[in-house]
Amino acid sequence: MVYLLKFGAAWILPPGIFFLGLWFAAWRLYKKREKGLAGVLAALVLVFYLLCTPLVSERVMGALESAYEPPANPQGDVIIMLGGGAYPDTPDVSGQGTLCSSPANRLLTAVRLQRKLDLPIILSGGQVYSDSGPEAVIAKRILMDLGVPEDKIIVEGRSINTTQNAQFSTEIMREKGLKKPILVTSAFHMRRSVLNFNKCGMEVTAYPADYRVNTRHDFHYNKLKPSVSALDDNVIVLQEVLRALVTRYLE
């Protein structure tokens, strides 16, 4: 009963209610003998609906996230953690400013690797917008709260995208004689990140984190309910594919 209520609620709230309304509009057009227009509208709504289902998003996102697996025994001389957004003035335990969910998950992986391997960490990420936070600076404060020594933290606070993450982090590594980076970023972001570092002449050991979907995909009818989070996952995949093409062929 609980699952059925969840499924029903998804069709009362957005985006489900919009699909019902648009399919009703397509049916009305069909009844008015506007069959061509009704078919086009129904097909477009169907495609959009499928993009909003976990049934599709789990498989599409899962395929992207499976590009790399975390190595059992990573070897390197530095850990690089890529930023992914921060809030500048939200309250935190030791001050103001917090990381968004993706970089916060990346940081958990990075700090555990640091404790295991005793390597320095390069925090790569600047202030992207006037109302966003300085990612690397905020991440440094949190790492120090978690017990990472300050002399093990290197702040790269200029980059505002993945291309610059790779460029500026590579510059720092070459200045310090570091040659074997372990790259920590979200699993969905890893393929493009590795590509950017390769273009800078730097081979990295990929250590993906912040997984958005499970590796096992069991079917349940609730995976057919429309979901904003499923649409978000599908949009992320499309963005990653597009940006990877731009990186590979236009930059």
Rank of each mutant, 00 (worst) to 15 (best):
G83D: 14
G85E: 13
A86S: 06
Y87T: 08
P88F: 12
D89F: 06
D89L: 12
T90D: 09
D92M: 03
Q96K: 05
Q96T: 11
G97N: 01
G97H: 02
T98R: 10
S101L: 02
N105S: 12
N105Y: 09
R106C: 12
V111T: 14
R112N: 09
R112T: 08
R112A: 10
Q114P: 07
Q114C: 10
R115F: 15
R115H: 15
R115L: 15
R115P: 14
L117H: 06
D118K: 00
D118T: 05
L119Y: 07
P120N: 07
P120K: 04
P120H: 07
L123F: 05
G125F: 05
G126M: 10
Q127K: 14
V128L: 08
D131P: 12
G133Y: 13
V137A: 15
V137I: 15
I138V: 05
I138T: 11
K140Y: 04
R141E: 13
I142D: 13
L143G: 14
L143H: 07
D145S: 06
G147E: 10
P149W: 01
K152R: 01
I154P: 00
G157I: 10
S159R: 01
N161F: 03
N161D: 06
T162F: 05
T162R: 08
Q164E: 13
N165R: 08
A166N: 07
Q167I: 01
F168R: 02
